[in-house]
Simulated scan of single mutants.
Amino acid sequence: MTVLGHGILELILIIIMAFGLKDLFSSPTVAGFIGLFGDVFLAWMGYGMIKSGINKSVSLENQRAGNSAGKRNLILVGALVSGTNPYFILWWASTGMESIHQSYALGLIGVLFFFIGHILLDFVWYTAISTAFSRGKKLISDTAYRWIILLLGIFIIAFSIGWKMLQM
């Protein structure tokens, strides 16, 4: 569901770029705003991870299947995490935009084929990552997992602060 949210955001970006609004996303002001929002979002995510690790509210135990509202939230999270990631924006403002430009040489069908190939690769990659993660549950304890989540939360906060400092 998260990758679906990522894919929906990418589809919207591709449509926008194919129809000429690419200059908006390459604007330093817009990119800066998205980057700042992304840093705040990353710090908030890191805080939540640290809090979950400390409160022991995160576990590797199998969770109940979510309801449809939970699945819709995962789609929204996928779009938000992607859209606020500075690297996502940088990739689309450079490599992605050039890929759209090249695929547009074949017309809208070229852009459609680019999107289909790109999103299928995203699904294959993230399926491999989630499969590896779910199988890895047998390798570590809940305590170790909580420590990993806590440390990754600290890393994400440091990354959100450090990335902005590197840009100054």
Rank of each mutant, 00 (worst) to 15 (best):
M1K: 15
M1W: 07
L4A: 13
G5Q: 08
G5D: 14
G5I: 05
H6I: 15
G7P: 03
I8V: 13
I8R: 00
L9Q: 02
L9V: 12
L11A: 01
I15K: 14
I15Q: 09
M17N: 11
M17H: 01
A18Y: 03
F19W: 02
A31Q: 12
A31R: 10
A31E: 15
I34Y: 02
I34A: 04
I34P: 02
L36G: 09
F37Q: 08
F37V: 05
D39F: 07
F41Y: 12
M45T: 15
G46K: 04
Y47L: 06
Y47F: 14
G48V: 07
G48M: 06
M49E: 00
G53R: 03
K56G: 02
K56T: 03
S57K: 11
S57D: 12
E61M: 10
A65D: 13
A65K: 08
A65F: 12
G66S: 11
S68T: 13
G70L: 05
G70N: 07
G70H: 10
R72S: 10
N73W: 15
N73H: 12
L74Y: 06
I75K: 07
L76N: 01
L76W: 09
L80H: 04
L80A: 15
V81A: 14
P86V: 01
Y87N: 07
F88T: 03
F88K: 00
I89H: 12
I89F: 15
L90M: 03
L90E: 03
A93S: 15
S94A: 10
S94D: 01
T95M: 09
T95Q: 05
M97V: 07
M97L: 11
S99F: 10
H101M: 06
Q102G: 03
Q102C: 06
S103G: 12
S103W: 02
S103Q: 04
L106M: 00
G107A: 04
L108T: 01
L112S: 01
L112N: 02
L112Q: 06
F114Q: 08
F114T: 09
F115W: 08
G117W: 02
H118F: 06
H118T: 02
I119R: 03
L121Y: 09
L121D: 15
L121R: 01
A128S: 13
A128E: 07
I129H: 07
S130G: 13
T131S: 12
A132G: 14
A132H: 00
S134V: 13
K138T: 11
L139N: 02
I140G: 08
T143S: 03
T143M: 01
R146P: 06
W147Q: 06
L150I: 05
L152Y: 05
G153Q: 09
G153K: 05
I154A: 08
I154K: 07
I156R: 11
I156A: 13
I156P: 05
A158W: 11
S160F: 04
I161F: 11
G162T: 08
G162N: 10
G162P: 06
W163H: 15
M168F: 11
M168L: 11
